[in-house]
Amino acid sequence: MIEVINITKKYGNTEVVSSVSFAFKIGQVYSIIGSSGSGKSTFLKCIAGLEKLDDGDIKYGNITKQKIGFIFQHFNLFSNMTVLENITYAPQKVLKVTKQDAINEARRFLKKVNLDSSIENQYPSSISGGQKQRVAIARTLCMKPKIILYDEPTSALDPENTAEVLNVIKNLSKLEKLLSIIVTHHMKFAQNISDKILFFDKGQIIEENFSKDLFINPKSTRLKEFLSKVRKIDEN
């Protein structure tokens, strides 16, 4: 279990995450929804240790920092390395895996994210957005994570690539003993894939519930407003 205890994150004088507490269970899938600027991504980066907390604490139990994977909105593949180098670099340097073992693992995970090994010698600049995100997922999987945090993984992709990436995430979420936390704007996807959904607004968790209940029976006014806007967009 990961216990987030009363965490606060400020940028200057603005509180982006305000005294948030929550316990995430290993083996479950959580989605975080909310409007842009509500603090979802910052909250996720706080869990990953990419942002320093201004207050509060996060208890990771026996999970080390290495076991937390992060999938970025803009992929963040290392532009000076080929696809294969991107995936094999960290396992060699951090997990001290041999080069050959790292390459074998990389090829296995490339297959798992539905990518052909023919792209392994290409640079990130020459592959599509959907391929980049799937390479990023393979890169994270090679580190044998216990937790994967997804920060709007499809927001920079076109519909076709979005479907490919969501499909990969869906398959991964079925893995046991893996905690997935997904910040997303795809409500249907969140509903289908998640065990629980958290609604974020103004740096706080306003509401959390089992996935279908949250959509069918929203309690807070803010969530009702948010969902009605989302439905209007869907209808249009």
Binding site: K45, F72, L77, F78, N80, Y89, V94, R139, T140, M143
Partner: peptide, 21 residues
Amino acid sequence: KGQFEAAKSLSIPYLEMMISI
């Protein structure tokens, strides 16, 4: 900035990150 964050998220040590990435 994303390149630094990606390296950090993969626990790549600071010196390795600077020299190789």
